[in-house]
Design a protein around this nucleic acid. Structure first.
Lengths: 221, 221
DNA sequence: GTATATAGTTAGATTAGACTAACAAATTTA
DNA sequence: TAAATTTGTTAGTCTAATCTAACTATATAC
């Protein structure tokens, strides 16, 4: 059995792998807010447990076993977030911290019940995919809103780096998952966008915001 | 903030206080399955935090602050058990281990939501009282079934030392909270009882079982 | 292709929570 | 009340996970 601490390292590696595949000690260290020497020694420990491929001065990689373990933690995290929103009435901006704690609980039954009550959901409240019981996850290929162009019609499908403040910001603009957004214009100077959706006819979104919103292009059939 | 480990010591002291008021290092040590020297040093630590009154070779006592902290953990534990049974469909025999983990989560909102969804319950699935938001608990004065006499009509109101096996045993006999039980006879030799309730006309219960069942005498008005 | 900067490692210290071995106080028993 | 038993404490060790300081390897720049 892995400790909560070990699980957090695995989860971070899993997330970094999704972003760039090759990871280093520094990057992991910064992501976790833990100093590099501590990360090095944990990598050795996880390598002993065959969860990580580690050689001095080489990039870090999860083994298949490690990736599965990490996937199962992410599964618990995202099922929990879904449960908190759908069953317990949390706002999507309030679930992260609790889910960070609940993901480390040991109780197959608890998460199985959640899954059942939710009807075996495939995505969490932020649009992120929920890994299956084997820890496998489909890496969705959404596009950043910031990479879209004027005139395009897109559907808000997911958000990344889901800080509470960012999600509250989206709440205040009524920007929820599933909303159809038309890009009116892009400001070359700072990358900010003017978009319209629902009753919002001309909402300006900063580049920083647009980079954290993932969309799917509408099939204009 | 207290660590999960500290919380477990407080909870154990709280429970022992309910049984006998004065507690010693040995008793606490045995209850927690932790060796005495470790308990001694934790008592010093909790005394520094003003949660426990500790002097060498003197009995252990919770301070008011300590009692409140312990009460709030018990509250979280019992709210959780109720939630698992009422909302998530767990059997009462399956909730203890998960609740032991969930009681240490830090999230006022999570437990508040549970409380709301349950309609602010006053007892848990085993008939134990749920402390209020201040950590105060009413110590119910139920009677052990083993202290009752033939001819008496009682209501099964709570169970103690709720091991999973014991609760499965009760399930198999359809002995649930609220069941009205009539004591038919008591065997002087081994203290076993023959009781009747519902469709069970003559069920024999061992002394060990009867000691763990708490009842309330029916008001024969 | 050497010098500098960046990334990574080693060594050693720290804290929390556990342990064993040995000793001391308190209580019980004869 | 003296001896034996039980209970509690002290001292020192161990592991997990963290840190800082100092050193080394790799990558980048001129």
């Amino acid at each position: 059995m892995n400790s909560p601490t070990e699980e957090n390292y695995l989860k971070a590696l899993f997330a970094l792998a999704g972003e760039s595949d090759e990871t280093g000690v520094k990057e992991l260290s910064e992501r976790l807010g833990i100093k590099m020497p501590t990360v090095t020694s944990m990598m050795k420990k996880l390598a002993d447990k065959e969860l990580v491929q580690y050689e001095s001065y080489k990039p870090l990689r999860l083994t298949n076993k490690g990736r599965q373990a990490a996937g199962l933690i992410v599964r618990k995290h995202r099922l929990t977030e879904m449960f908190l929103v759908e069953i317990m009435g949390f706002g999507w901006e309030a679930v992260h911290d609790v889910a960070e704690q609940i993901e480390h609980l040991h109780s197959p039954l608890f998460f199985q019940k959640m899954d059942e009550m939710l009807g075996f959901p495939k995505i969490d409240p932020h649009g992120s995919p929920i890994p299956d019981e084997q820890g496998n996850m489909e890496w969705k290929s959404y596009q950043k809103l910031s990479d879209c162009h004027p005139g395009e019609l897109v559907v808000l499908s997911a958000v990344i780096h889901t800080s509470s403040d960012f999600l509250k910001y989206l709440n205040s603009r009524e920007l929820h998952l599933g909303v159809q957004v038309t890009i009116q214009s892009v400001e070359a100077f700072d990358g900010s966008m003017v978009v319209s959706y629902g009753s919002h006819k001309a909402e300006t979104l900063s580049h920083v915001v647009c980079e954290r919103i993932l969309v799917e292009k509408e099939n204009l059939s």
